[in-house]
Design a binder for these strands. Structure first.
Lengths: 148, 148
DNA sequence: TGATACTGTTTTGCAATATAACAAAAGACC
DNA sequence: GGTCTTTTGTTATATTGCAAAACAGTATCA
């Protein structure tokens, strides 16, 4: 039992999932604030990143890489295309599929995006106590999210 | 640029938010599977936990503790009440507010819930490499989610 | 050729979350 | 005591993220 002013949260305070959710929320909120200037959501950030590093990848491949359902990926890509950041180009060998590419404007935005991202990321690294702590965190998170 | 079979995800692979999201998703999916037997979502788990440890807390207080909007808490609590797990009792001193309590049946379910939870949690601790690693992870996550 | 599998798409539903507005009640202040 | 403000639970509504089913066009393969 807890006293009046300081409720007992001890069970939750040792729950991995509970803390993962809170941390993820904090980082995503900061992300949204940082990228308000470019009006980019986390999912769009990751899509632009993948396309910029791997131009020409098929739509379904990008979706699978990011664990996004093909069906949900459509509207996401529609928006990037409507904003002139990325485009679908018909595959010359497979008329069902599209390759995804950045537009010239999309490449510029992506460059600015990476700059913003480094600033965002650096702040969190500092808060964690340095790159070493960041690596430790990523290692632990990978043990959780890597299958098997 | 990346080769065909192994797309370059290096930028994302060092992104804290990206890995937080993936880890949180993995843990929550496992949570859902573990608690299918009791048909409890993560939010309901946390509410039952708080009420069981702090019976009589006001509805708004529980919501605030868990960072749940008062408005969204209503339906959540409605469901727990409809299932006979928890109940609202009018405060004797403030006719606007309710104190939240577990029912007898709710207390039993909560006990079973904690058992399931320990099994769920232990699996993840083992996967992390022991309680020491778990504590290290929680410490890092707290540095992220704790304000300032 | 014909059966089967893949690709992008549409539609739909559910759950989580956020905001605005409201009535009832409490508290503050003169 | 009577007004003004704040709190509490609630309703309604919109948005977002995510998942499943079904479909048409296309490729693959026996």
């Amino acid at each position: 039992m807890a006293d009046e002013d300081h409720p007992d949260l001890s069970v939750l305070s040792s729950a991995i999932g509970y803390h993962l959710r809170r941390a993820q929320l904090a980082v995503f909120q900061d992300f949204t604030a940082c990228f308000a200037e470019l009006d980019l959501r986390p999912a769009e950030f990751s899509v632009l990143t993948v396309i910029s590093r791997n131009p020409g990848l098929k739509q379904g491949e990008v979706a699978a890489l990011l664990d996004i359902q093909r069906a949900n990926f459509v509207a996401l890509m529609d928006r990037l295309e409507r904003r002139g950041l990325a485009e679908r180009r018909r595959s010359p060998t497979d008329r069902r599929s599209y390759g995804l590419w950045l537009t010239r404007s999309g490449a510029q935005v992506t460059q600015r995006m990476f700059d913003l991202w480094h600033a965002h990321e650096d702040r969190w690294v500092e808060r964690l106590g340095g790159a070493g702590e960041r690596d430790r965190l990523l290692d632990l998170l990978n043990r959780i999210s890597t299958p098997e």
